[in-house]
Amino acid sequence: MIELEGLTKRFGEKVAVDHLTFSVRPGIVTGFLGPNGAGKSTTMRMILGLDRPTAGDVRIDGTHYDRLKDPLTYLGALLDAKAVHGGRSAYNHLLCLAQSNGIPASRVAQVLETVGLTAVARKKAKGFSLGMGQRLGIAGALLGDPRILMFDEPVNGLDPEGIHWIRNLMKSLAAQGRTVFVSSHLMSEMALTADHLVVIGQGRLLADTSMADFIRANSRSYVRIRCPQRERLRDVLHQAGITVVEAGGGALEVEGGKAEQIGELAARYGLVLHELSPQQASLEEAFMQLTAEAVEYHAQAGPEPAPRDWGAGWKEA
């Protein structure tokens, strides 16, 4: 169980994490979702005591991380795959971690086997691909067989097979009764693994809900229509009090499940329809809507110049 209470972090003027309060419970996978720069990594660093909170508190089963007597056997974390000395072999990297917590050296070979790095155990970490580095980081997190696991963007750089593997790994870890806290900026990824969802944007809590509730609340339904007599159809729908929006590619969209009504109207006015299909918006769209206000780094649509403080906050990402 990880409990955050009013957790806040400021870097100078910039608020990276803004009064976050939520808990991460054992036995399930909790997804930690937010766009780039939302404060996910900063929050995770504060949980581990790497960054000192400006205000608020975070506790691991009621204790501060730096008060844990056996940190690695209590909480294993993958922060970022680059937190490794490139000149050290995978085996020695894990060995020095194991020794620092009195974990038997035999665990090193076990976790290397688990993540599939046994063949390159004696190779230097700097020669590793992003995916291999990610696996080494995961091996470090699993080393102490901890009851709480924290992964920051674990699927980054993994191939499809690796992504499939990490999904199953997280689910099986949670099924063993462990607390699993995993961050991502991909809603689609979380929809497949997480049971619970915490969404933040610009450091603020936007949602703290079960995955099922999130899907129910956020899956927008609409009707997609294609019609050769578009203008005529627009007029007809307008008269019937139905709002139509252009959807690009010559298609029109109508909010809500009004497919039958639209079909009947078209028939009454003798309009030909090439498509009349009820649609569900993807969770990705729901997520983007939720965080639209809070996205820090919008891609520029046109050739506008970058804002003046461009990149000012990239370090907090």
């Binding site: 581990l48 790497l50 991380y65 690695l72 680059k82 937190a83 490794v84 620092s100 917590n101």
Partner: peptide, 15 residues
């Protein structure tokens, strides 16, 4: 350790 980022791993293992 600061140059490579290893320090975060070190400080996590030994807070």
């Amino acid at each position: 350790e600061y140059g490579t980022g290893m320090i975060r791993t070190t400080m996590t293992a030994c807070p």
